[in-house]
Design a protein around this nucleic acid. Structure first.
Lengths: 254, 254
DNA sequence: ATAAACCATAACGTAACGTTAATGTCAAGA
DNA sequence: TCTTGACATTAACGTTACGTTATGGTTTAT
């Protein structure tokens, strides 16, 4: 074969030039993405000069992560708006980058955790009950709720050691997480009710509320914006879900 | 059903709690990743309490991008070294982030290009022949090569308009890229030889070299570190490949 | 003439499920 | 008791973008 100014590529040549496999060319032919210019009587495919360019274009878009279907829409219709397609793809890419970034941080955290250098999940909801905030809440709470109870609760809390507080905090978080997990099952599900019971036992660490007071607490979680905000951080549906679950719980207990 | 302290999950419950589909649980059962604690006589699966925890662990690792095979290795063998597994996975993740970052920049460039605000590929190899560098090369080249030719070349180049220079630069780049693309096909391939011919015509823009001078140029590209460096930027194999291809080209022409 | 290199189609395999389809089971209400 | 509806099961095909044989015909170089 001699170079005569115009060239027809065989599969192998085109594949090698573009750095793809022969199977890929077969496949692109099959799905109509890149068809040979002609097929010789012996069945051999003959690709045109422009095929290389088109193929490189295809690989380019593939590199960018587009599916062959999208690419087909782009390269087969010259009037296609490649610009807006790319811009929306850019969005997706950026989302991926951010997602991967988060994953990376999580992996790092996990590694540190495994190395015992760091405790995960220590914070979460329960940090809402940290020392300072306790003090602040207390002042105002006394005016809205039974001062007797509030003071007793404060006193009990302060009597704990740091380790106790840590453990109680963990218990609280575990209870809240159990309840969050039960949200899709509905407030009357056994899981949700078990969560409420767990939460009730947790409350014992502060004071032992009566049934009606449980309802009051659930209300409080919904109405006091600071409680609400903390619950929202865990899950925006949590506060309301707890009200529903606790209501059912109390009714069944009565 | 009443909560009795110990709970067995049905597929639906477990799936809903963990946020996965029933099919997923079936599949995990099938591949032995998460088997139910028991199967009731009617064929219903019964999952144990701990299944939820294990399932969440599985989803966690999935989120991190591990394959189910890897996860199986982690969760079924408690002595597995999850730490090193995660660390190597971290590597992969970081690679992904970098790759996506590059893609993002490319997409941005492409978008700008489509908007006509920027020209891609204008630089590349040919920028080696920019005005200033021309001057510099010229001085030394006169001492190594025929001063007559060098001066003629300079003069011809300077006679071009900016648009001419742009076009010539593009032609040069196209020729070099054609040759790079032909590297996997070997220096004697028609594609490579066609590339050499294209390059030869491109050289006409400076002066018309004889066959022997083509060889000299190919040598120059390999021996002068500054030429070599510029070729290397395009492809580290280019300079040497050109020497081989040009050698063959010249021999055939003689 | 024969081997090496190249061409073709056909068909199965991959990962991790989604999606019917056909059928069986169970608790609750009329 | 019967029916309905929610739930359960297995089986099997569909998805993406090719990789990987298997089998057999064609071209090219020696």
């Amino acid at each position: 074969m001699v170079y005569d100014g115009r060239m027809a590529y065989t599969v192998k040549r085109l594949a090698t030039l573009a750095g793809v496999s022969i199977r890929t060319l077969h496949y692109y032919d099959e799905i109509g993405l890149l068809k040979p210019e002609s097929v010789r009587p012996n069945g051999y495919r003959e690709y045109a000069d422009e095929s290389l360019l088109k193929l490189q274009q295809i690989r380019f878009y593939r590199e960018l992560g587009l599916s062959l279907g999208q690419i087909k829409a782009i390269v087969t219709r010259p009037d296609f708006d490649a610009l807006s397609a790319l811009e929306s793809h850019r969005q997706a890419l950026q989302g991926q980058v951010e997602r991967l970034g988060r994953l990376l941080r999580t992996v790092d955290d996990t590694i540190l955790h495994l190395k015992g250098r760091k405790e995960m999940d220590r914070k979460q909801l329960f940090e809402a009950f940290s020392e300072e905030q306790q003090e602040q809440y207390a002042k105002e709470a006394e005016q809205m709720y039974d001062p007797e109870i509030v003071r007793a609760s404060q006193k009990k809390w302060k009597s704990y050691t740091a380790a106790d507080k840590q453990r109680i905090g963990d218990e609280g978080n575990a209870a809240y997480q159990a309840i969050v997990a039960a949200i899709p099952l509905g407030p009357s599900s056994p899981e949700a009710q078990a969560g409420v019971e767990r939460w009730r036992r947790h409350m014992d660490s502060f004071w032992t509320p009566g049934l009606e007071q449980l309802l009051g607490l659930a209300e409080l979680y919904n109405n006091d914006p600071r409680f609400k905000a903390n619950f929202d951080k865990v899950d925006p549906r949590l506060a309301e879900f707890m009200r529903a679950a606790v209501t059912i719980y109390v009714e069944r207990k009565k």
